[in-house]
């Protein structure tokens, strides 16, 4: 078990999210930096979808009651076990009574705490992820508080087998202040003036203070819309459309005044013009952006987006190979 002493700014239980429920308005939730989270689980010998903690900007401290393993990945963050600094992207042993502390984030925005066996709060609609707006999943649908106790599952691998394992730094994406993010343009972009779309791709967008798991509001140039009468039911503002579904990663431009990129706790649909979608592989980068950070959008074709997706999976396959999980995975697959 894990007993929370200090919760940190915003710490939630997350796994890889709940699929199949977008049509009722339930977003997937799940770890925003998908790659860092999956590597964290691999390091402690967990299946990639075991639940862990997502830590935002400043970390929790907690005590464990049993033998185990821990790895911290994602943002660069102060991490100690019993007041001794510990390396990130590495599996460390834990003993009953050990105290783990995470401090403030030095670079990036979100760190992941993965423990052998995973956090085993009960599943809701097939996932343990927390969706705070809907008070759903995780621990009572909310962020962690001091005094919370989280159950841990049984480790899948012998702790000794994983102890001290690390991830090759070359495979870890660099945490940058200036992000290059790839986007597939389209959806309702035909409603926007061509010059505004050019500006969108040329601009340096600044992450505003309203940047959370639902979405990131970005400050940059404003948008002009093509002239024409508003369709029946769309609403009077030219940025309004007849309400439709919003993909995770979609970029909407309410009022033409700002751009919002929707993330894993997205509102699933609404009546704002969407102009494109950030490719899945690059949503990990946005997860590590913080207010004041800068983002540039780079248009790609669908096939380039699919190629980037394969490259990210190949990178993860290299991590598995390095950790000796490759053969095991192959055997299981046969």
């Amino acid at each position: 078990m894990l007993s929370i002493l200090e919760p940190g700014l915003l710490t939630t239980v997350q796994d890889l999210g709940r699929l199949h429920w977008y049509h009722i308005g339930m977003p997937p939730s799940g770890a925003l930096d998908n790659f860092a989270f999956r590597v964290g689980n691999l390091l402690v010998g967990n299946p990639e979808d075991a639940a862990g903690l997502e830590v935002t900007y400043s970390g929790p401290s907690f005590e464990v009651t049993s033998e185990g393993l821990i790895a911290v990945t994602g943002a660069d963050i102060a991490f100690t076990i019993n007041n001794q600094p510990a390396a990130q992207w590495r599996a460390h042993a834990l003993h009953p009574g050990d105290r783990v502390s995470l401090g403030g984030v030095r670079r990036g925005a979100r760190a992941y705490v993965c423990l052998a066996g995973g956090i085993t709060v009960s599943e809701r609609l097939g996932s343990r992820s927390t969706y705070m707006l809907g008070r759903f999943g995780g621990l009572d649908g909310r962020k962690l508080e001091a005094g919370d106790c989280l159950p841990l599952g049984t480790a899948h691998t012998s702790p000794d087998a994983m102890l001290g394992r690390t991830c090759d730094p070359a495979l870890i994406p660099a945490l940058q202040k200036e992000l290059e993010v790839r986007v597939v343009m389209g959806m309702c972009s035909h409603r926007v003036a061509p010059d505004s779309l050019k500006d969108f791709l040329a601009a340096d967008w600044e992450v505003s203070t309203e940047a959370d798991r639902i979405g990131y509001r970005l400050k940059g140039p404003t948008f002009e819309f093509n002239a024409g009468e508003q369709p029946f039911g769309a609403g009077a503002d030219p940025s309004n459309v007849v309400d439709l579904g919003y993909p995770i990663g979609s970029i909407q431009i309410p009022g033409g005044l700002e751009a919002i990129v929707l993330l894993n706790d997205a509102v699933t649909g609404g009546g704002y013009t969407t102009i494109g979608t950030v490719i899945k592989a690059d949503l990990d980068l946005i997860a590590q952006a913080s207010p004041g950070g800068h983002i540039r959008f780079h248009e790609v074709t669908i096939n380039e987006a699919l190629q980037a997706r394969r490259e990210r999976e190949a990178r993860l396959e290299l991590v598995r190979l390095e950790l000796g999980l490759f053969d095991q995975a192959n055997l299981l697959g046969q």
Binding site: V184, G186, G245, T277, A305
Partner: peptide, 9 residues
Amino acid sequence: DYGGDEYLL
């Protein structure tokens, strides 16, 4: 139309 690499609109 494509909504990125995982969605179609």
